[in-house]
Every structure is written in structure tokens, then in C-alpha cells.
Design a protein around this nucleic acid. Structure first.
Lengths: 201, 201
DNA sequence: ACATTGACATACGCAGCGTATGTTAATTGA
DNA sequence: TCAATTAACATACGCTGCGTATGTCAATGT
């Protein structure tokens, strides 16, 4: 019974370590997370950790990869389910704001990741998100829906504004009210991209 | 000779420690900066450091305060020297991008600061910059130059886009070309705020 | 002049990361 | 089927580096 191939055991070990690390990094943060406590919580020792991930940073990379993959799936689902390109783009921005509000994503991907690993422009992380948004904007520009603008530049500006807005909301005393204000201002800025602005704020 | 009052000696000690820390944090980063090396470079020991700043984080706070003060002065100079409110606002945004390109500011204020101290919405840092930009936008809205939008929300979105753009530029293989693209896209977004867009890209 | 405060140095303990070494179980080859 | 080898993990160690406790000496107050 329990005819488990070795590869599955290894995958499970890795998954448990990543899961424990994800929880620790997401709550107390990367710097405060102890490798001893982390591995113990996963029912393992630091030996397993260093065997699989090399060092603490390697573990962080693995965690970020996992979170980023989930983010990409969620974003794709949003943009694919939209009626037209423009609303799809807006929905994707809104979805990104909501994701950036989640403490785990905010802490691990948006703060500790860049601080520990260096800025994300090099590592694969977030490039998936950027690429997705860049493609959307490129299509919108080609279709003549928005003003001709460099797609990647626009995508990066939008993502920057989005992340900032999310952190602002997350730390506000009244997140609901601040969220409304941020979304309203955000829509104004996005309308600025349209060739025929709705001006329907 | 050298009739130095005690207060001046203390101020000089603090200044030397902050200066050494600023250099270390700005080059190798907060996590990799050793307090021993740092204080030794300043001709002192860790005793002085812990006496004045409490702990490593306290030193980081002091460094950030200093850098932030300089940033605020530079931004105010830019906005005060502009012909009209709108160009003043644009100049300020451009100045902020340029500042965010400086490695010291990018690393200490924009990356390590938030990661180590938590998000900046609570500490005084950057609030000066935010306040300055918020005031500008508020005046522009009151004067009917831009669409009615919550000033703080707009300021935060603009700053977010700005910081992101700066990091993009800083890590590009061709910073000049990327900078042009970013500025162009940025102006498009800002024009979206205007009631009578120039559309002169 | 003497007491006191405070600026700074010295010395110590301890946590935590990384590595070197050991142990056990699964896979390979004949 | 049974070595032999490889690889997954545990154990043990050293070292760096932060924070604190203690000591010293100069400057200020009376």
C-alpha cells in the first residue's frame, strides 16, 4: 500500500517546505523568518532545505515563483472572461489591485522580493503579469481604442500606480473609503488613455 | 584651540555615523551592511552607534530622514521655480523620476526602507513628497485646470507610476531610450488629467 | 573642587545561516 | 537477487553579526 514513487515523495517535501516558507515569509517577513522554525513546522530539518534550495534566498525564489504563477493564472482568467478588450483591461487592473491588497502577495512579492533579490526586472517573476498587460495594451492601441503609446511603458506605469494604490489602501484606517477614492482616480487616469474618453466618472 | 562645544562634537559624531551608514546602505544594501565595518569606517565603534540610534533600524530611520529631507528640498525648488501650476506639476514629476533613478535613493528609500521598516505610510518619510504633490494637484483641481479628482489619490497614483518607471529605466539595457518611452507614456497619462488635453505628444 | 551626567569603548552572550559529514533508503546493473 | 552507487535528508560544527551589559573618561553644574 501507499506505493509512492520516490519522485512524489521529493515533490511533497519541496511542497511542504515551500508552503511553510510561504506562511512564514507572508506573516513575519523574510528577515524575521527562522529557517529552523520554518523547517520544523514542516516536520523537517534545515538539511532538507539546503539540499533542495541551496540557501535562504533560493527558498524565497521558489516561494515567489509559486505565488507569481497563481497570480498569472488569476489575471488570465479575468482578462479572458471580459466582454471587450477595454473592459477586460480595466478588469485586469482592478484584479491586480485586489491581489496586491493580499498581505501575502504584498509582503513577499512586492516588498521582500525586490529588497532581497534585487529589482524584479531580471527575474521571471512579474514578467508574466507585465507581459499580459503589455499585450492587452498593445491590442488596444492597434485597435485604435486608446492613444498610440508604447505598450510596455504604459503597462509599467499602470502597474506602478496599481501597486502603490494597493499599498495605500492596505494601510488606510478606512480601506473601503480609500479604495473607492483610489479606484475613481485610477479610472480617470485610464480614461486619459482612451481616444474617446467617456468622462463618466 | 578648536574650542568645540560638546553639542557640536555629538552632532559631528551622529553626522559621521549617518554618512557612513548612508554609504553602506546605498551600496551593499541594509541587510549586507555590517555595523562593525560601518562604525569602523566612521572611526568609531558600535558603542557609539547603539548609544545614538538604539539599533540598526534606528540608524536606517536616521539615514532615510536625511535623504528624504534632501529630496523634499529639491522638489520644492523645482515646483517653486516653474512658470505656471501645470508645468510646475510636470516638472516636479520629472524631477521625482530623476531622483528615483539615483541608486542611493532607489535602494535606501524605495526598497530597503519599506522592506525593513514596513510601508512608508506611517513614518514621516515620503509624506513630505506626497504632501507636496497632493497640494499641487489640489490647487490644479481648484483652478479648474484638471478634472475634479481626489488630490491625494491622484498624487499617490502618480508617485507609484513614477517610482515604477524609474526602476524600469534604471534596470534597462538602454536607459536613454527607455527613459524617453517612459516619459512619453507618462505625459499621455498626465494629459488624461487635464480638462483640455493638449494631445501634443 | 567635587559630584554627576552622558558620550563612547570594551566585552560578552546568543541567535541564525551555511557547510561538512554522516546515515539510510531507493535505484541501477549484472 | 544482490552488491554498489546515488541521492535525500539529518546531525553537528563554526562563524558572523546583532544587541546588551559594563566600564571609562571627559564635560558640565554648583
Amino acid at each position: 500500500m501507499a506505493r509512492k514513487p520516490r519522485a512524489d515523495m521529493i515533490a511533497e517535501t519541496r511542497a511542504r517546505l515551500i508552503s511553510a516558507a510561504r506562511h512564514a515569509f507572508g506573516t513575519v517577513g523574510y528577515a524575521e523568518a527562522s529557517m529552523d522554525e520554518l523547517t520544523h513546522a514542516a516536520g523537517l530539518t534545515r538539511g532538507a532545505l539546503y539540499h533542495h534550495f541551496g540557501d535562504k534566498k533560493g527558498l524565497l525564489v521558489a516561494v515567489i515563483d509559486q505565488v507569481d504563477a497563481e497570480m498569472t493564472v488569476r489575471l488570465r482568467a479575468v482578462s479572458h472572461g471580459a466582454a471587450d478588450a477595454w473592459t477586460g483591461f480595466r478588469d485586469e487592473c482592478a484584479a491586480y489591485i485586489e491581489m496586491a491588497l493580499e498581505p501575502e502577495i504584498q509582503r513577499i512579492v512586492l516588498r521582500d522580493g525586490p529588497a532581497v533579490l534585487g529589482d524584479p526586472w531580471n527575474w521571471p517573476i512579474q514578467n508574466a503579469c507585465i507581459r499580459s498587460m503589455t499585450d492587452d495594451i498593445g491590442r488596444l492601441a492597434k485597435a485604435g481604442i486608446i492613444v498610440p503609446v508604447d505598450p510596455e511603458a504604459a503597462a509599467r506605469l499602470v502597474m506602478g500606480a496599481t501597486q502603490h494604490a494597493a499599498q495605500w489602501i492596505a494601510h488606510a484606517s478606512d480601506p473601503q473609503a480609500v479604495s473607492r477614492k483610489a479606484i475613481a482616480a485610477f479610472n480617470v487616469m485610464l480614461d486619459g488613455l482612451l481616444l474617446q474618453p467617456t468622462q463618466a466618472h
